[in-house]
Design a protein around this nucleic acid. Structure first.
Lengths: 148, 148
DNA sequence: CGTTTTATTGATACTTGATATCAATTAGGA
DNA sequence: TCCTAATTGATATCAAGTATCAATAAAACG
């Protein structure tokens, strides 16, 4: 929430693009800066609205690059647009508040263990998994969102 | 796979609509029949293509009714259109072949147990979860799909 | 620093998935 | 059969996202 420490994630996003041999432009910098400043997950359209000076196509392209580089997670959770969140943890899962839409991350070793034990029951070779936990977040539980 | 037994699922789909007070029309019957005959998951557009005699709007409406009634699962797995599969098991998860897109179902009690144990770690109240396992299905492993 | 090359941008048009509209039709009860 | 309300589906519209391509800007080179 506070911004009194240098954030290593910023470097990660820029590095992710550099590693792909992409140029550092002002449009991309604007997108990356906005992504960092979002502590919540966001949609592509949200970024477009927040960054009217950056073209829609560029916003979508930059997001695609970052997902491609593994720096962003794409969460196809809603009926409409998918959400994106910075991939802070190597392998993780997401919590999604059913009321306010806030997205969180967590790791749990048992989930990975379950995956391995499932191997026997499943008709093929497991190459990945995804899990989303739907919650009512503490903020919403405490009534912070009752006006909605 | 074979069709030598009466299929109780057919009744479920029709009953699902009846329970919502919806009329039995020929358009809806066509959609339900097509859904039953699909042993794989399908997209709305696939149904539209398979049923040119039924209007697009009706296909989408019928799918929405069935999802709403819990008779279909909506799987927002792909970049494009979500897929739907008949909900045969009360609570379950899905396997998705990364190569051919085939969707399967499974239940695993450990997954549910993990959910309960996660309650302590998670910043809110768990109200649901979803899990998808990405596989290469046996058919694809055996090379049945190499032409793609 | 200026020139050159090449990636990038972004307005626009388009594609796709899905919903709203609404006159014509049809189901199903009286 | 008739009546009424639900349903249909052609069409328009919306929303998310991509392709196009002339203009622009980054960075490599001298």
């Amino acid at each position: 929430m506070t911004s009194d420490t240098a954030n290593p994630i910023e470097i990660d996003l820029f590095t992710a693009l550099e590693d792909k041999g992409l140029r550092k432009t002002s449009a991309r910098s604007a997108v990356l800066t906005r992504i960092e400043s979002a502590n919540d997950a966001f949609t592509a359209e949200q970024l477009c609205r927040d960054l009217p000076e950056v073209g829609r196509a560029t916003v979508y392209r930059t997001i695609r690059h970052l997902v491609d580089a593994g720096a962003l997670c794409k969460l196809p959770i809603l009926d409409g647009a998918p959400m994106y969140s910075i991939a802070r943890v190597e392998h993780h899962h997401h919590t999604i508040c059913s009321k306010c839409g806030a997205v969180g991350e967590f790791r749990h070793s048992t989930v990975e263990r379950v995956m391995r034990s499932l191997g026997k029951e499943i008709d093929g070779e497991i190459v990945g998994h995804r899990m989303e936990i739907f919650i009512i977040c503490n903020q919403c539980l405490s009534g912070a969102n009752d006006g909605g």
